[in-house]
Amino acid sequence: MSTDTAQARGRRIVPVYAGYLVAALVFFGPVVFMLWSAFRRNVDITGSIFDITTPLTLGNFTNLFERFAFVYYIRNSFVIAGGSTLLGLILGVPAAYVIVRRRLASVGFLTLLARMAPGVMFVLPLFVLSVNIGAPSNTGLNFLLLIAAHLIITLPLCIWLLIPFFEDIPISLEEAAMLDGCSVIQRFRNVVLPLALPGLSVAVTLSFIFSWNFFLFALALANNDTLPLPVIAFNFIGQGASDYGGLMAASALISLPAFLLTIFAQRWLVRGLTGGAVK
């Protein structure tokens, strides 16, 4: 009887692991192919896609820094994505708190509409604004405009990611702090924020990744001094020929900061859960 039970259990487990394998191939297969192709010559990528005997090279990465001022484009991406994420948190954290405590669901829904709207809807007004304020010829203004444009992505995301975390914090904790003489700002800083650390880590991670990868606003609004990495990667694709090796190397470098931030945020998420626990 035990043997039959083990065989039946094994037959049930096989489809489950087969599904895991298919999901892994779908999600991780393109990533593995990108990393592998980043170290291959362009002729090998186009001529023998799955030939594992082809030699590996660092030429694609060296060409990136020889052909382009790649360090400056990395800096530009960090300025735009980091600035919009930081500003989105500064505005989004108190906004989400007020929406929860004042029960302003309609205000939260309006912010969600901005996130649901297609990005191309904002491009023309932002471009007209850019021309009127002289942003195309002013690097500082251009950075500020790009950061403000990316707030359309990061601010609604921060608000809607943090609302459930604030809703889970009992109001009784704030009432107890109020009885101890804490002001509204003190209650928010010393009671609410430590308990919302997991939500903050998720909001920072997703906001940065969405802003880092967003292509449209930079393509339409950035000048030569403020171009971020996604727009530069577009230069590897042309009508006559395409540098697939360079494109894969650029894609790997573009993905690296988001990947590292995700790993860091995962550890921070655990620390936030234990540090904000109610004893």
Rank of each mutant, 00 (worst) to 15 (best):
P136H: 08
L151Y: 00
S130Q: 06
M121D: 05
S130P: 02
L145N: 10
E175D: 13
R101Q: 09
E167G: 02
L157A: 03
N132L: 15
T111Q: 08
L124T: 14
A149Q: 08
A149D: 00
L162N: 12
F122M: 11
G119K: 10
V123H: 03
L144A: 09
S106N: 12
L144T: 10
L126S: 00
G134Y: 07
M178S: 11
V107Y: 02
H150D: 10
N138V: 07
V123N: 02
L157K: 08
P170V: 09
L173I: 08
N138Y: 09
L110R: 01
S130V: 12
T154I: 02
L126C: 03
E167H: 14
L129Y: 07
S130L: 13
L129V: 07
P136E: 00
P156E: 04
A176I: 13
A149S: 12
F166L: 07
I171C: 11
M121A: 15
C158D: 14
L104K: 11
M116Y: 06
L129A: 10
V120M: 13
R102K: 14
L129P: 12
P170M: 06
P164R: 08
A148H: 15
P136Y: 05
T139K: 15
M121N: 04
R103E: 13
N142R: 01
G134L: 10
P125W: 03
W160Q: 08
L145V: 05
P164G: 10
A135H: 13
T111Y: 15
V131S: 12
A176C: 13
R115N: 10
T154L: 01
R101N: 03
P170T: 06
H150R: 01
P164I: 07
S172K: 14
E175N: 07
R102V: 08
F165H: 13
A149K: 05
I163D: 05
A114I: 14
I163Y: 02
F165P: 03
F127H: 15
D168C: 13
G108Y: 11
G119N: 07
L157E: 04
I147Y: 01
